[in-house]
Amino acid sequence: MDRVVIVSARIGAGHDGAARELDRRFAARGAEVVRVDFLDLLPGRLGSVLCETYHRQLKTVPRSWDWLLGALGTPTLAGASRRFAGLAAPALREVLGDGTDLVVSTYPLGTHAAARLARTERGCPPLVTYLTDPSVHRLCVSPMAKLTVAPNEIAARQARSLGAGRVLVSSPLVSPAFRPGAGPAERLLLRRRLGLPRDRALALVVAGSWGVGQIGQTAADLVGTGLVEPVVVCGRNEVLARRLHQAGHRYVFGWVDEMADLMRACDVVVQNAGGLTTSEALATGLPVLTYRCLPGHGRANAAVLHDDGTVPWVRSSRELAGALDWVLRPVEAAG
């Protein structure tokens, strides 16, 4: 395999995170890898408008995302979304050129742009769809894909029911930096370097690259249990970081390049979306809880992860202390 084109999108960090790891693995096998952003393939400013609209929706009216995802699952709107994705097909055709051996998509609309080419042009390279979430929406799947890679058996069954052909279950794509900790000595060193307390159980609160969701309330609820000190990663949401500091939270980070080290310094991850960060935490050996999850894909992912026994879904503040006590017991027993 000589040339691989990977289609992702800068909508959140999960699609790009999977694309980066695919890039690393294909390059390690000697392939020439080209990564493109679906949003940049759209005509004019359509890509920027799409990204900005999605971001604004999650920040201002997040509950509408439940409704929208449901609507996009209907045949009419799903078809309209596929046609919209087709607007990126001409630019993608130019990227592919004549020497591409494989197209891999980590973003649903990128999948349908590549599928449009596969339907309408001869000689297009085979398409592989990589599913970044544990739950599968109708728009994540195309029958034109030669292979669909799912992160778990539940996602694989959902993909098949939505029309995917050959489906392979594979562990989530996670950078090798996300490894289990080497023991208490490494944790102590990391806490010292990151400016974290040495003698408290730490809950790492993550909210994706955009820092969306009920993060302030989550941090307050964690403090209220008396069991953990919250360590909050706000991504690029500077307003959220200021609000948390003003509320008295001491350990607040913005965009983090050393997320693997930060995870190994903490005792539990509390997340609200169930995507890439959850896979990274599990690869690091940390217990994970879903709490105050985002509407739409956040709730769908939470249900799958809870049902397969991977990540408990804590549905109320009353349940939070018990869930923390349960996941922290091995840490306390280990000293």
Rank of each mutant, 00 (worst) to 15 (best):
G322C: 09
A80L: 14
A220N: 11
A115Q: 07
A78Q: 12
G285E: 00
M1L: 15
H306I: 01
V314F: 07
R56K: 03
R236E: 12
P125V: 07
I154Q: 12
R56W: 12
A28V: 04
L92H: 08
G181R: 00
S8K: 14
R200E: 15
A182T: 06
W313Y: 15
L22A: 11
R116M: 08
S142P: 12
S48I: 00
S279E: 15
T132R: 02
R315Q: 13
G99Q: 12
A302N: 01
R93W: 10
V167E: 05
V5E: 07
S81D: 02
R82E: 15
A265I: 01
F253H: 09
R83S: 14
V104H: 09
A89D: 14
D40R: 10
A31K: 11
R166A: 11
Y291R: 02
R191P: 11
T76L: 15
L68A: 13
C140I: 00
A281K: 00
T111K: 02
V34M: 06
G79M: 04
A9P: 03
N152C: 15
A281F: 06
V327N: 08
V136H: 10
V252F: 10
M259E: 03
E186L: 00
T148Q: 11
A185F: 00
A303P: 01
Y54E: 00
S170A: 14
D66R: 07
W255V: 09
R45N: 13
V5C: 12
V167W: 07
A273I: 03
G224R: 11
A177G: 08
L22T: 03
V269G: 01
V205G: 04
M1W: 10
L42R: 01
V327D: 13
V231P: 12
G298L: 06
A323Q: 07
T148V: 15
D37R: 01
L46I: 10
Y130N: 15
V269M: 12
E238Y: 07
W210P: 00
E186M: 04
A273N: 10
T277Q: 07
L190W: 06
L58F: 12
R292Q: 14
E229G: 10
L222G: 05
Y54N: 06
